[in-house]
Design a protein around this nucleic acid. Structure first.
Lengths: 194, 194
DNA sequence: TGATAGGTTGAGCATGTGCTCAATCAGGAA
DNA sequence: TTCCTGATTGAGCACATGCTCAACCTATCA
């Protein structure tokens, strides 16, 4: 039925956020994209709520686009590390950076992003745990390790995307790979070696 | 002389940014704080330029407040690690997060923050290099190591400040200390140990 | 068919905000 | 004192943007 305009509005907002970022989206953009009157948006939502809900939907959509779908944990980790700084993941990280920033002053956004943050962490922790169970690597505290890897990844991505400080994608990828290898006790040269 | 109103405006803007963040500051706030007419701000600056200049000044001011001033590299590193997640450093990091986010879409801001980013990195790299020279630790590539430490620190601080995902200060501090120890080949338990 | 209810519309309102520009002021030169 | 130049002022403009609300559909029921 065409009558589910509420979902259409939410969906349009999420699409626009994926395309242009949270800050750039206006109520009028959303209603235009949804093919709906301005009034209807305000009938169903308050803007800050809609923005948060749409940002969450947009985040999940980007996560789904990037999440490793390989058959085994070690291959999943490979995919993760390969895609970690690929341009395909840029939209996700841009959105992530913007959302976490907004979350500092916007409770709705904070609430909406909570689930995503935990989801990403759980996903990564599951890979680490399963890989350890299968003997691919050593990882006694998967959740904590996932958090450290995610934090390092997050930091590096910020540098790559903002250029503050300047960091090439390839360099960043090397740093992350070494970090993960060290974290999991995988055979790889330490940080000391060039 | 009272006639240096330009500097007064810039200074007022920087103060307000330190107090309230970049996004919250308005031209009228600045002129009111500087005790100056609205027109004068626009006479001396374009708003986006002033905002970037003031953000840079605010960043440097916060950096100066946090930068380790101990006599030897090993003590400087201690101070750095001790203050890394202390509430005293919160304003710096909040500002840093906001500025780097803005820099993605604001060229003036990007240009202004460049120097700060390099400055922080240089500072840290210098400590690492001097410490290695004095035999406190091992660090063949200080600049790269500084970048990794800064990235990890940045990522962890983001988690602590935004709660996305939730991370306690004490936990974050432990993670960073272990990482630095590992990075510098210092004697300390590895990640595997609880 | 007419009445009712609830979805839907968009011109217009209220507010916020960067910036303009004619008017004003202050200090030095003549 | 008078004039002139450049600093300074702030009411008002132009624009952006979330949201209101009286009016308008449209489907359902009696």
């Amino acid at each position: 039925m065409t009558t589910d305009r509420r979902a259409a509005i939410l969906s349009a907002a999420a699409d626009l956020i994926r395309e242009n970022g949270v800050a750039a989206v206006r109520t009028r953009d959303v209603t235009a994209r949804a093919g709906v009157g301005i009034g209807l948006l305000n009938h169903y939502f308050k803007w800050c709520e809609l923005r948060a809900l749409a940002a969450e939907q947009a985040l999940w959509a980007e996560i789904d686009r990037v999440v490793p779908d390989a058959p085994t944990p070690d291959l999943q980790l490979d995919v993760y590390l390969t895609r970690a700084f690929g341009p395909d993941a840029d939209p996700l990280w841009r959105l992530w950076i913007e959302v976490t920033d907004l979350a500092m002053s916007d409770p709705d956004m904070a609430r909406a992003a909570e689930g995503c943050a935990e989801g990403i962490l759980d996903e990564l922790a599951a890979i680490l745990e399963q890989g350890a169970a299968k003997g691919h690597w050593h990882c006694p505290a998967p959740r904590a390790a996932a958090l450290r890897i995610f934090a390092f990844h997050d930091g590096l991505v910020g540098f790559v995307l903002t250029g503050l400080p300047k960091l090439e994608r390839a360099e960043a990828a090397k740093h992350l790979k070494r970090f993960v290898a060290l974290e999991l006790g995988l055979p790889q040269q330490g940080y000391g070696t060039p």
